[in-house]
Amino acid sequence: MNLFRILGDLSHLVSIFILLQKMRSTRSCAGISLRTQILYLMVYCTRYLDIFWTFNASLYNSSMKLVFILSTAYTIYLMRTVYKTALDPQIDTFATYYLVGGAGLLAVLFPYKYTVYEVLWSFSIWLESVAILPQLFMLQRTGEAETITTHYLFALGAYRALYIPNWLYRWFLEGHFDPIATVAGIIQTLLYSDFFYIYYTKVLKGKKFELP
């Protein structure tokens, strides 16, 4: 465990709280992609299968896994019930089928081992790297976003971005290298780069998030 990883995990945790807070304070899920949330739930459910047999390995990991699965399920529940009037299927249209299919293909081609758990783990890593695309696509279509939504996206993107120095640290200091997670994590961070740039140049300077 190193500082980058803890900060990354905390950033992930904070992002979920910001999202729930956004829905509560605006009483709406406007601007949030249901498709992205469903993809994330798939990511957590396939990656954290080991929660059933590694519960004693690390209380930190196990509790974080539970929080990620439950809070994402709760977010989806809220979006489909309490706040469903703000759902806009006309805007949230990204072809998620291709993302799931592509992640599935990569998982079958490059798992560490050919076991159900390892293939699903690899699938979850690849799917996570692109799970934000429906959300970013939606943002592009609307051309603007509420500030609190951009804080959510920043915190979520920072999670994987902070894992990159964590992987470098582990590689140099612990001789530990995880090529699948590292390559997928770099792709994921690159997908966020445009968003990070606009967040930095606009939102952090007190301006509204608007696409040029």
């Binding site: 990883r5 995990d9 080991d50 390995a57 990991n61 974080m64 896994k65 560490y112 894992y163 699948i180």
Partner: peptide, 10 residues
């Protein structure tokens, strides 16, 4: 061993 160790991250 290597693959298992990889999964100690979230």
């Amino acid at each position: 061993k290597k693959a298992e160790k990889a999964h100690d991250e979230l």
